[in-house]
Simulated assay, not measured.
Amino acid sequence: MEDYSKNTTREQLELKLGEQLNALISASHALNVRTAARFDSTLQPAAFLIVRWLFTFGPTNATVLAESTAMDRSSVSRLVNQLKRLEYVKSETSPDDRRGVLLSLTELGRQQTKDALKEKESVFYKRISKWEDSELEKFIQMLKFLNDNEKI
């Protein structure tokens, strides 16, 4: 009997965790869409995903962008062309491979990204502003543990 009730409790806890993770993912997605609109309301949110990747990781090629953002190469190409027309992204010859092309943010693209992210950060930081440092440290550690793919 104990094993059954222990399993039932565990299942209930896992369901509650799933509910909270879904709420976090949904809220995060909605905030990402609002941030993308803040960056440039004429673009699809997927374009901002490319911008965010370039802002975080720096210059790269279209293949890496496609793999890293889980988009097909044709979508990345179309979105990058839009970003280039709006002067948010530029392409340059790769110094390592003269045939290759590196994509990077322009100064305008970097500034627009910073401005959009300030708004997103303010929403996020408002949610955790009343947390004690110890609570925040524990939350960070638990997220690190959850995100540690090597332990799966």
Rank of each mutant, 00 (worst) to 15 (best):
L15W: 06
T9Q: 12
K6M: 09
V123C: 02
L49K: 11
E67H: 13
K6R: 14
Y4W: 14
N7R: 12
A27M: 06
L108F: 13
L24K: 08
L79T: 01
D97A: 03
E132Q: 15
L13W: 04
Q141C: 11
F139W: 13
D3Q: 12
Q112Y: 07
V33W: 01
K16A: 15
R78Q: 04
R10H: 04
L103E: 01
E67M: 10
T69H: 03
Q12D: 07
S28D: 04
A23M: 09
V80I: 15
F145G: 04
L31V: 00
R38A: 08
M142Y: 12
L83C: 02
A37P: 03
E132D: 13
R85S: 14
S75K: 12
T42R: 14
L117K: 00
L54R: 00
S94F: 02
T9S: 10
N32P: 02
Q44C: 07
K144W: 05
F39S: 00
V76F: 02
K120W: 02
R85N: 08
E119S: 08
L21K: 10
E2Y: 10
L43W: 03
A70G: 11
I128L: 10
L79F: 09
D97T: 04
S122G: 02
E67G: 08
K138Q: 13
E92K: 15
L79C: 02
T35E: 06
R38V: 04
R78M: 06
A46T: 00
N81W: 11
E19R: 13
Y4E: 08
A27I: 03
V76E: 01
T63K: 14
M142S: 14
A47Y: 02
A36K: 01
A116V: 00
E132F: 12
S5M: 15
E92T: 13
W53R: 15
K130F: 11
S104G: 13
R73I: 07
V51C: 02
M1T: 05
R99A: 09
L103W: 01
E150P: 09
G109N: 08
E2Q: 09
L102G: 07
R73P: 00
A62E: 09
R98T: 07
R127M: 07
V80M: 06
Q20E: 15
N61L: 02
K84R: 14
S129W: 04
A62Q: 13
M142Q: 12
L136E: 01
L43F: 13
K6W: 09
D3C: 05
N61S: 03
L136C: 02
S77T: 15
E119Y: 08
K151Y: 03
D115M: 13
K130C: 09
T56D: 13
E107G: 08
E92W: 07
V51A: 01
L136Q: 00
L13F: 07
P59H: 05
T93G: 06
S104F: 03
G100I: 03
Q44R: 15
K114C: 14
E107Q: 12
L102M: 13
L54W: 01
N81Y: 12
L117C: 00
G109D: 05
L105M: 07
G18E: 06
L65S: 00
E107K: 15
T35C: 07
L13D: 02
V123H: 09
K144R: 14
L43C: 03
E87A: 12
I50W: 00
L21T: 08
D133R: 07
L17G: 05
F145M: 09
D115K: 15
T8H: 13
T42S: 12
N149Q: 11
F145Y: 12
R73F: 03
K120H: 08
L24G: 10
G109E: 11
